[in-house]
Design a protein around this nucleic acid. Structure first.
Length: 863
DNA sequence: GCAAGGTC
């Protein structure tokens, strides 16, 4: 039997289909899909891997000793020189700069002292896809020859080489060959398998050099930054060959914005309309001098038009222009287009993967922007019409047309550009999937359609001697726009006016403006910029940006660096500039090309890189204190929500050590005891200028961003009059009424805790009291709860009014979990609830830990 | 607890 190893299941299936005379038989070894067929009279089987099946990692069971070098300790305490493959690890004998630390240095724990050793630590390869490796070995034992048929590129050669090594463990003498193909056409696949070559170990070594260099630099710098100022577990400060230059791009743009000096300019604008036209038919007019840089000139011109009610049409010009249909989607252009529709690149890839797996779209990781001749475009369009009723009319038009597809600049033959397969059931898709599927389907149709024609009407007006202009675009021939409305501006229809006509003018205003700094990157633009600079690959860029958000170097969208992100770039560009520049990637590319060509070796390239890193680390270790302080200051600055009304120091977001909950506290603690609760369910950020201080109580006002809802601004102080009406009567006490006396229920706030509650004026007799939510201005309704008789109040949260029965024990509360954290009125009940909460918190933590563990395990098993 | 690259 001939064993054919492909990089992914899809490739395994396609190879089987192309080589087989009949239909290949789908089968399974353990849980792995395989395809059996006959080729040239021989029994064959293809198996698809899942990319890399081995993952490089440090060999952390070894220790370092200056005499022995790397060694391991046996159970009996015997010290044996470590058996390190490849000879890649070399103790730093040749770096005289660094004094040796005591013997027995381990690289296992994260310690600053061990980093010089980590720089030189041996790298081994651990199985990452255990299931697949098991299946692979099982097949290898039954085979009498093997063909490596992974993708024809550097990583593919490495994946093939790793697979071969695993095969060799059970079948050391199995004859091996390599099939090189760049597309899945029958001709290309047949040609590749008819002309087998041998595995290119140099190419695989080049790939492995990249793996090692990325791991070593990434691990050493990440551990260094994390340890320079340890911020507690879960606060890793990462660095890497791709992520750090990407972050630097964002920081650089932010610096340009900060350095930008705005310039004043003036605009004169208003509205115009054909005489007697309805208000809806008005159009914007502006002075022909779009930007006056001279204030006097602007005021002089405005003096001529201020209060003028009519103008004359001086000229009408019509010009039509063509908008060409877009090119087919490759990964980056899909990510950019989806980002413009509010789907982040990382989410785009997750959704695209699910659509691909469900068979609705073609393979989503492609650079190719030219449809292959073998793709039957017409068949796809008619299939698309069948499963998408909404697209059927436009599909019909496409089929009736000449159908000449557009083409982009990049042409490869491994995969077609991303297109809808015309199969599956799009009506079953959920929101995000549907949105992305529509984008892909409509883009595909657009690439087969004609240009759009847009007619522009330009009006020149004479407003009391001053030249004004108005302009409107109208889509006259929709062309591809019929299928692809994304980013299309709304029509601005100008009325049918002619030279000499009179026009009404309104609301002419002189506006003082300032020039704007360069815009921040959108996530889509950032992906494109990374591609332009050679950072990352189509498969990794999205996840790398996501990672930068996860470690809180980046925030918001458009992309903005945090103070921490800026501090990291400042520190690294000063002491480790290699890692902040995209040059490291281009240099690595050069190194790898030489390894590929046999002009250099993996060992030499990696060792050279280790030596460079050793120098960088030396430099960094001299400035750990300084760098740690900078990181620490930046983290504080990121947590700042405003100034303390009591002592003026910074108020920051803090995490309670006991409850792990967050609160807003003063940096002056313990001298200043000002604290506020954090609004729940929202992302909090500081405001600037006048808006940052509450005029009523002096506490900071903050911006709250709920998930996918409009942001709002509130005062952080829950007992501020802007949030709360004190001493409000919300009803009458039922218990007192039954006892034949009168008691009023009044809303209070505690001086001590700042907590809000309702209490009866005869509390000493009846003991009636109810808790209130921390925030939201109260309103009495005069109504009582039909279930329990307690008063009903309206709490005006910034997200809208919220009507509640104040009794926490009321049966109406059973239906939905309490939103507030307030406990019941009685002290015992309060205790109980607190205890329950603690248990719940513990449970959640335990759950999280287990979940995390199992995920780790799962990932390890998957890899 | 670390990177970046494949892919599920």
């Amino acid at each position: 039997m001939k064993l054919i190893i492909a990089e992914k299941n899809d490739a395994a299936r396609q190879i089987a289909e192309r080589l087989s005379t009949g239909k290949p038989k789908k089968d399974k070894v353990y849980n792995t899909a395989i395809y059996r067929f006959e080729w040239k009279g021989e029994e064959c089987v293809t198996i698809g891997l899942a990319g890399h099946i081995l993952a490089p990692d440090f060999c952390d069971s070894v220790l370092f000793d200056k005499k022995l070098g790397w060694y391991s300790v046996t159970e009996d305490g015997e010290m044996l020189p470590a058996d390190i493959p490849d000879g890649l690890a070399r103790p730093p004998y040749d770096t005289k700069r660094k004094p040796f630390l005591a013997d027995g240095i381990s690289i296992k724990g994260w310690k600053l002292e061990s980093l010089p050793y980590l720089t030189w630590a041996p790298v081994i390869k651990l199985p990452a896809e255990k299931e697949l490796i098991r299946s692979l070995k099982n097949l290898a034992k039954k085979s009498d020859s093997v063909i490596i048929a992974t993708d024809f590129d550097r990583e593919g050669e490495l994946i093939g080489s790793d697979a071969l090594n695993k095969v060799r463990e059970v079948a050391p003498d199995l004859p091996v060959a390599r099939a090189q193909y760049s597309s899945f056409t029958k001709a290309e696949i047949t040609q590749a398998f008819d002309n087998l070559v041998s595995l290119d170990q140099n190419l695989a070594d080049a790939g492995e050099s990249r793996q090692h260099i990325d791991l070593i630099w990434g691990a050493v710098l990440t551990r260094y930054l994390t340890l320079a100022k340890f911020g507690g577990f879960g606060n890793v400060r990462s660095a890497g060959r791709v992520q750090t230059p990407t972050l630097a791009l964002v920081v650089e743009r932010e610096r340009e914005r900060m350095a930008f000096v705005p310039e004043d300019y003036w605009q004169i604008r208003g509205m115009g309309a054909a005489q007697g036209a309805a208000e809806d038919d008005r159009f914007k007019i502006a002075h022909k001098t779009a930007r006056f840089t001279d204030k006097d000139a602007a005021e002089a011109a405005y003096g001529h038009v201020d209060g003028v009610a009519t103008a004359t049409v001086a000229a009408v010009t019509k010009r039509s222009r063509k908008q060409q249909p877009p090119t087919p989607f490759a990964t980056t252009s899909l990510q950019a287009a989806a980002a413009a529709e509010g789907i982040s690149p990382a989410r785009t890839m997750r959704i695209a993967e699910s659509l691909y797996m469900a068979g609705l779209i073609s393979y989503p990781r492609v650079d190719n922007t030219v449809y292959p001749a073998t793709l039957d475009l017409g068949a796809v369009v008619s299939d698309l019409a069948k499963i998408n009723p909404a697209l059927a009319p436009v599909c019909k038009k496409v089929l009736a047309g000449p159908m000449k597809p557009t083409r982009g600049k990049v042409e490869t033959t491994d995969h077609p550009p991303i297109y809808p397969t015309g199969e599956g059931d799009p009506s079953a898709l959920d929101g995000g999937q549907r949105k992305l599927y529509d984008l892909i389907a409509r883009r595909f149709l657009a690439t087969l359609m004609g240009p759009a024609t847009i007619e522009n009407t330009k009006l020149e007006l004479d407003v009391n001697g001053e030249p004004f202009v108005a302009s409107g675009d109208v889509l006259v021939t929709p062309g591809f726009r019929e299928a692809y409305p994304y980013g299309l501006k709304r029509d601005e229809q100008m009325p049918p006016l002619e030279q000499g006509d009179a026009v009404d003018v309104f609301d002419i205003k002189l506006e003082a403006k300032q020039t704007e700094p360069p815009a921040r990157y959108s996530q889509g633009k950032l992906v494109q910029e990374m591609e332009k600079r050679g950072l990352g690959t189509k498969s990794t860029r999205a996840s790398i940006i996501e990672r930068l958000y996860a470690v809180r170097y980046l925030k918001n969208d458009p992309v903005e660096p945090s103070q921490l992100g800026i501090a990291i770039i400042d520190a690294l560009s000063q002491f480790a500039p290699r890692i902040t520049s995209p040059d490291m990637t281009s240099e690595l590319d050069g190194d790898m090309t030489r390894v590929e060509r046999g002009e250099d070796t993996e060992e030499h390239v990696v060792t050279h890189s280790r030596a460079l890193l050793a120098g960088v680390l030396d430099e960094l270790l001299k400035h750990t204190q300084e760098l740690g302080d900078a990181i620490s200051d930046a983290v504080t600055a990121d947590a700042r929500v405003g100034a303390c009304p009591k002592c003026g120091k910074d108020l920051v977001m803090k995490t309670s050590a006991k409850t792990r909950g967050s609160f807003i506290g003063c940096m002056g603690w313990p001298d200043c005891d000002v604290t506020y609760p954090v609004p729940s369910g929202v992302k909090v950020s500081p405001l600037e200028g006048e808006a940052a201080v509450c005029p009523e109580c002096g506490a900071p006002r903050i911006k709250c961003q709920p998930f996918r809802q409009k942001a709002f601004e509130i005062c952080v102080n829950p007992t501020c009059p802007t949030n709360y009406e004190p001493d409000l009567k919300v009803g009458e006490c039922k218990v007192c009424a039954e006892a034949g006396r009168h008691g009023d229920l009044i809303a209070h706030k505690s001086e001590k805790s700042g907590k809000r509650f309702i209490r009866c004026t005869n509390y000493d007799d009846c003991g009636v009291s109810y808790p209130l939510p921390a925030r939201g201005k109260l309103e009495a309704t005069g109504e009582t709860c039909p279930e329990c008789g307690a008063p009903i109040v309206v709490v005006n949260t910034a997200r809208g009014p919220w009507r509640i029965c104040v009794n926490m024990d009321c049966p109406t509360k059973e239906k939905k979990p309490a939103r507030g954290r307030k406990t019941t009125t009685k002290a015992s009940a309060a205790k109980k609830t607190t205890a329950a909460k603690k248990t719940a918190a513990k449970k959640t933590t335990a759950k999280k830990t287990t979940a995390k563990k199992s995920t780790t395990k799962k990932t390890a098993a998957d890899k």
